[in-house]
Design a protein around this nucleic acid. Structure first.
Lengths: 207, 207, 207, 207
DNA sequence: TAGTAACCGAGACGGTACGTCTAGTCTTGTC
DNA sequence: GACAAGACTAGACGTACCGTCTCGGTTACTA
């Protein structure tokens, strides 16, 4: 998958029409393809994914599919990207600990989901192999971290954390642990563990 | 791939000869195949891995390869298992902080190295797609963590950490942050940062 | 392709306009399409003929092309028909032998020419696969033979050849030999050979 | 089709085994493929020829087929070449005219046959486009002409034709006429016509 | 020392998905 | 209406690669 094609696929769903000459691409086909890709992926997994099956399920010719995505990987990537849900705002209650718990629980659930969860290592690997790819990846990660980051920054303003708190490292310790257990060690990540994680992260930075 | 076949493949390299009649298997071929598999895996990733390429690189016929491993996945698994390296012992000085710094620095350097470092996201990705992969991978990780884990456990015995310290979580917060910055965010990981990381991890668990 | 559609396509270039409402068809497009078709056909043969390439070469949209001809075969047929050239008249001097020599030399030169000469085997091949092609092709051939045929017929009237001469066979022996050497055996066809050919053809039919 | 691949295909059926390492190609597959190709060609013509259909009919994987022939055209060429029948010897009776009649009738029948007849224009066209191809073609033609040529040469020895007869031109006039009528004009070629053709060719060269 | 069982290299084989390509049709907006 | 542009359906093509198989030939143990 090339970064450019991904970018265009991503833009397509959001950018202005910018219609040129000729018959416009069928929006129905767009949607049907992505939906079919998600469904086939869910049913057969990555290894069992067949381009022909996606096209058939979408009720579309294979060439219609290849006009949009240069290959199977790109297609799947776009489908999963489009299927991502936008994060709800991070709560800001009186309890910093409780708010951070919401953040990490949400992260755990995302990582544990079938679609995004399976996608992340793939993106990581692509990024490690094609540096230009890593940026798209980082963009996504940065986005998902923002809510938590802002809550921590607010905690400093509120006086809940010292002024010189390293906000990034604060988050990296919490997120890193979840990431690590989700994708590397596979160790348990139940709510109690998450609570403990938040507590310790806070204790590490408070004085 | 079945667990049993994996086990036998793994054992094969270490079990007793149990020689029967006929020409024995070439030990050179054994080694060449595993080495070639690792190299091809590192170069092309799981998706780009070609059995034919491994055979060719090993200077061996494809059938020689399939006589040893029932399929591509098993072969790769065996290769990765065999390629695991043994860590030097973790120091145990008077300074827990200093000893842990050695552990995390070693980890950072490993992740930053050309060979292992580049392999890890690939292994991760392969593991996410092929669950049977993940277990081999986890075993490897567990092994590499043991040194650090033991040092933390000793710290409890020494009275440097409370008795009820969650050793696993302790390590996951430190290792997770390094992992995250190495492979995900790409943020800085200089020695100062590592020191700070160790300090905060300790502070989080001490009372 | 049906015979009727061919006929209409052929007629189209010569029939009265019969203008209805709306924008009239572009005469420039008409010409450009046929010219482009001939050129593409000469360059790539029937098998290598791409409708898209013809349209592009003609500077015309594919739909403009399909508005005129129902399919590739019909288009090519119309193009070849339109591209037929008219021969100069066959001389009628006192010397039948000399006149026939002019005919066969002209034929040889045509076959040896870059444009027509290279086109003929291609047309032949297309005709062998697409019978509807063969007829158009035969009409063309018949046309080009007429001059020579008439000269031979005149020779009978003049008393230079017997009344019962098989005019067609007479021509076929001469033309066939030239055709054969030009496109099949590649044997020499210098003026001496042509003279000898004419002489023998005449001797064969005179008594 | 490349000349080399054709040559190898042709040689394969006649050359020595020359077995190298590895599993030898299945002779059954060889035969089944060629047979299936001929049958599919006969049933659906060139345009309707599907590689997949040939493979299926031959009970062979498509890859087995492509291992032998680089493309559809080459395969068909080989199939038709292999299906060619060897000419029986040209008779040498007291009647030169009668013997030559056998030759030309045989030629006419060959040209009129479905397989060879349809093949010749294709070969011609390929030869005109790829000069290196023309040689294979000429070889075939030369072979088929030899019988007739030898009979004419014998006629000179026998005193049936003058010593200075141009044997090649003699044949070209007869063969050319048949060629021309078979592939170009499509004019009748019944036995009477052939008799007349032979008679005139003889008259042309006798004194 | 001869057999013989299992190995080895080489490469063909069945099967199957991929991504490409083309013909002919359809759908836009523009002239 | 014609036209340019280009998307669309349908389906064949030729490639790639896996895991299996079939050869000729080799290598060590065993009778």
């Amino acid at each position: 998958m090339s970064a450019s094609s991904t970018a265009s696929a991503v833009d397509a769903s959001e950018a202005a029409p910018a219609r040129g000459a000729g018959r416009p691409r069928s929006a129905e086909a767009d949607a049907a393809i992505l939906a079919a890709a998600i469904e086939e992926f869910a049913e057969h997994g990555y290894e069992g994914l067949r381009v022909g099956a996606i096209a058939e399920r979408a009720g579309v010719a294979k060439s219609t599919l290849y006009r949009r995505y240069p290959n199977k990987t790109d297609l799947l990537q776009a489908a999963l990207w489009q299927a991502r849900s936008t994060d709800p705002p991070v709560p800001h209650t009186d309890s910093l600990e409780q708010d951070l718990f919401v953040v990490v629980r949400r992260l755990r659930d995302t990582f544990a989901s079938d679609d995004i969860g399976r996608l992340i290592p793939t993106i990581l690997e692509a990024g490690s192999r094609h540096p230009e790819f890593a940026s798209a990846h980082r963009e996504y990660i940065t986005e998902r971290r923002r809510g938590g980051l802002e809550r921590v920054a607010a905690a400093i303003t509120d006086g809940d954390l010292p002024d010189d708190t390293d906000v990034q490292l604060f988050m990296d310790m919490a997120v890193g642990a979840i990431f690590y257990r989700s994708f590397v060690s596979g160790a348990a990540l139940d709510d109690d563990t998450l609570h403990e994680l938040v507590r310790q992260t806070l204790r590490a930075h408070r004085r």
